[in-house]
Design a protein around this nucleic acid. Sequence first.
RNA 1: GGUGGAGUCGCAUAGUGGCCGAGUGCGCGCGCCUCGAAAGCGCGUGAAGGGAGACCUUCCGAGGGUUCAAAUCCCUCCUCCACCGCCA
Length: 423
Amino acid sequence: MIDLRALRDDPDRLRASQRARGEDDAVADRLLDLDSRHRSALTRFESLRAEQKSAGRSVSSASPEEREPLLAAAKTLSSQVKEAEAEADRLAADLSGVLAEVPNIIEEGAPAGGVDDFTVLDKAGAPRELGFTPRDHLELGELLGAIDMDRGAKVSGARFYFLTGVGAMLELGLLNMAMQRAAANGFTPMIPPVLVKPETMGGTGFLGEHAPEVYHLPADDLYLVGTSEVPLAGYHANEILAADALPHRYIGWSPCFRREAGSYGKDTRGIIRVHQFNKAEMFVYTTAERAHEEHLRLLGWQREMLDLLELPYRVIDTAAGDLGTSAARKYDCEAWVPTQGAYRELTSTSNCTDFQARRLNIRYRDPEGKPRFATTLNGTLATTRWIVAILENHQQADGSVVLPEALRPFVGREVLEPVGAKG
RNA sequence: GGUGGAGUCGCAUAGUGGCCGAGUGCGCGCGCCUCGAAAGCGCGUGAAGGGAGACCUUCCGAGGGUUCAAAUCCCUCCUCCACCGCCA
C-alpha cells in the first residue's frame, strides 16, 4: 500500500512510476478525488459524533422534566451520526479498494518497461568449455537416480516430481549450506508455517495480480505460501519494533507452492518450473534510510552463494513492469544453463520499501520515539531450481557430476555417479 | 470435535449501561532534593486519523447488534488456559 499523504504532496511521483510500469497513471487522480471526499465525509461524521456525545451527556444529567425533549434531540442526532458514519465508511472502502490495486512506487534508477527491458549489471564466471554434448538436467537427474518426474506425475500430476537418493541429499545439502551461511552472516534461521491466513497473504501483496498463482484451501480459508517471504513478513505484523534491534534478518526454509497458472507449455521438462519446491529465503526488516544498502548486501550474499557453487551467472536490474506489486526495485541473478544456451533466474531480491509494512502494520520507533513504517526486503539464497544449474554446469562426459568444493561437506560426497538403470 | 474460564494503556490490575471522557501500582521520562546517587516528592508518560491551530474523532482481542448513551448487555469469530474425546 502506498502512502496517501505522500501522494497528496507529490502525485507526479506515482504518475511517473505507473507510466514506467506500463500501467494507468490516472489512478493518481482517482485516489486524490476519493481521498478528499473521504476526508470531508469523515469531518462531517466526527463533528456530528461530538455533538451526539455531548447531547448524550446532557440527557444523563437532566432533570426528569427536561429529559424528554433532550432525548428526542439525541435520537435525531443518533440517526444522523449513523448516516454520516455509513457515508464515511463507504468512501473509506472505495478508497482502500482503489489503493489495494496500486502497485508500489518504483525506486529511482529502476529501468522503465516490461519483462525484456532489464539492464544487465554484471556477468560472473564464464560458461565452461565442455568438449562434449551436454545432457540436460533431467537426463542427468535420471542417470544419477536423482530425479523421478514420471512417478511425480503418477502420484500428484504434472509439474510434480520426486527427488530420490543423491537428488534428495543434494537438495538438503544445498539448502543447508544456504542456511548455514546466512546464519554465519547474522540471520536468524526460521522454519515458518506454510499455510497462512488471508490477511497475511494479502498483506504481502500476493492476492492482487498474483492471485491465480496461489493455492487456496477453501475449507479452512487458508493459503499455501509460494515463498516463506509471506510468513516472514507476517511474523512482525501489527508490531512496533525497537529501533536499536533493527535490522532484523531472517533466513527462512520452507516448501513453496505455486499453481503456475498461465504458464502452460512453458518449462514442462524437468524441475525448472514446478508446483512445489524448497527455498531458503532471506527476509529483512530495516529503515527506509538503510534499505538501499541492505538491498545491495542481499545481492552480495546471493552472489557469494553462486560463486561458491562455481556457477556462471549474470545480474540483472529488473524493469519496472516486471517488478510485481510490492517491489520498488528488484535484482535477479540468472545462471547459465548450457543445454538451453540461456541464463535462467536462480535468485531474486526485492526492496519493498514500506509497501508491505503498511499493509501488515509493521512499524519501528524513530529516534524521536515516533512510530514509522518499516522497510522490508527479501532475497533468494537457494532453491530446488539451483539443482538444474549445478547438474548441467558441473557435468562430465560420462554423465557424472563433480560437486563444487564448497558444497561437498553438505552433501557428503564429491562426485555424483550414474547408477545402473533400475526402473 | 466437545465443555468451562479468560483476553482492559509496556507489565500487573480496577472497572456489571451515563461520575470510564478508562482509575491505581510498577516500569519509563523530566524536574525538585543531593557533592553525587538511592529514597522521597511533583509533573508527564499508547496508537491511528482529521484540522493552520485551539481541539476533535476512533481504538478496552476482532467484527456485528441493542441503546439517546457500551470496556460493561446480546450475537459471531479469533487467541490463550483447563478438562474430555480422537489422532500422526
